[in-house]
Amino acid sequence: MKKIKAGRQPNRSRAGDVGVAIVLMIFGAFFAFPLVYAINAAFKPLNELFIYPPKLFVRNPTTDNFSDLFLLLNKQGVITFTRYMFNSVFVTTVGTIGHIIVASMAAYVLAKYRFPGSRTFFAAVTVALMFTGYVTQIPGYLIMAKLGWTNTYLSLIIPAFASPMGLFLMKQFMESSIPDVLIEAAKIDGAKEGKVFISIVMPLVKPAILTLMIFSIQALWNNAGTTYIYRDELKMLPFALQTVGAGGVARTGAASAATLFLMIPPLTCFILAQSNIVETMASSGIKE
């Protein structure tokens, strides 16, 4: 029986395998095309950007577009590129760390205990998976204003703590990967709930932590921060790069460089954490 797993599965035809590969390659090209384009365009010199007919691949790569981009951003106004960079890095880091701590604590008790209100609460989180920023934006603004959080980093950082996707994935993962006996044994040995959480539960859910990290970075890093913030010096990197793109055709080169620049951090994180993410998503199902 073990033999079957090691070699080819006997109910697969060669022709079918080739077909699978071809279908994936065709669609893969469609999915990869804009990204391949972005990478190439960012390194194209001016004469290649406006060549007719347009060519996909760059022939004489240059970093001119990047130096243009930084020059543009630095002379644009009083706010420098480094300031936007700091805003984005700061908000993404604090928001992600806070999200992981807050969501894991909640996920732990929801996964391992049944207490009044716990199931209703989780059901509400599952429904909230469908929310997007725009639907809650208006009342969200009124609430932010009441709290006095408009024009502060808090308006971006704090809501990120309670991202429904994070709690959902973490709870499902804890439910399937932490045996109850382990927690009971630790308690018999006299460990308090906080100690169990920090020294037993958290080390066991590393793949899920990395997954939450990726989803959180993805959301925060791509956030322009213009919903609750009006002061330019507090806005995020995507806002700065959007203003470059808004400069019109002449700035195509710098805007392509900006697009690539924004894409790199989340893409790198995903590549590094991919196997952990797949492991976590294995328990992502909605039961019942």
């Binding site: 804009p34 972005a38 993805q218 805007a255 392509s256 924004l262 894409m263 989340p266």
Partner: peptide
């Protein structure tokens, strides 16, 4: 993952 890719399109 790549977010702000509308420019490319």
């Amino acid at each position: 993952i790549s977010g702000q890719v509308y420019l490319i399109w």
